[in-house]
Amino acid sequence: MKRRLPLIVVLVTAIVCMALKFLNLGERGTTLATDLDTIVQTSYLFAFLFGPIHLIRLHYSNVQKRRVNWAYSAFLVGVCAVCTVVFFINRIEGPVSTFIIDSITNATDSAIYAMLGFYVCSAAYRSFKLKNVEATILLIAAVILMLGQAPIGDAIIPNTSKFAQWILDVPNSAGMRGIRIGASIGAFAASIRVILGLERSWTGSGS
């Protein structure tokens, strides 16, 4: 029962979802499909605290057991509690909330994301060597694209931007389409395995 019920739920939900699409139920079918979608969205909404609870439990336990860097965990829990109260009182679109989100949260988020740029450049410097044909093609395509998107590219070699655009439109687009078709076929196979109960690692019982 404990192991089979979730698998039955998977099968029934998938069949209902597909039936609403494939059976010609007219206007009623469309309404039912929209309602099912809203029910799923509602279930996501009411499960939203799952992540925050996990996070707070983890950091609270770090503080309680005085693990390494527990002070940062205490700081995180404190910030989360204070910000939650402030955002509730001030509302999410209020001036104080906007100031905290725009000036600290979003700025830090963008800065950490932008920091990856430094690592991408340093990784490129270390790994872009003409080791074999594949690496050479990768290097040439990347260099042309970078030059093509910078104003200096056309100044060094005329029409670099046009060539870069051609690479994006033809070989890049075609290669990505091949990958997408392959991934879609893989997703199909995975979906069928899940519906038939062949893939059940998510239940904690292994395949």
Partner: peptide, 20 residues
């Protein structure tokens, strides 16, 4: 196909670097 993929990955890499 492998060479074509290298062109696709190289151009994707170049675009991402410029975005960063």
């Amino acid at each position: 196909g492998r060479y074509a993929l290298m062109v696709a990955f190289g151009s994707a890499y170049g675009s991402i670097t410029m975005a960063y």
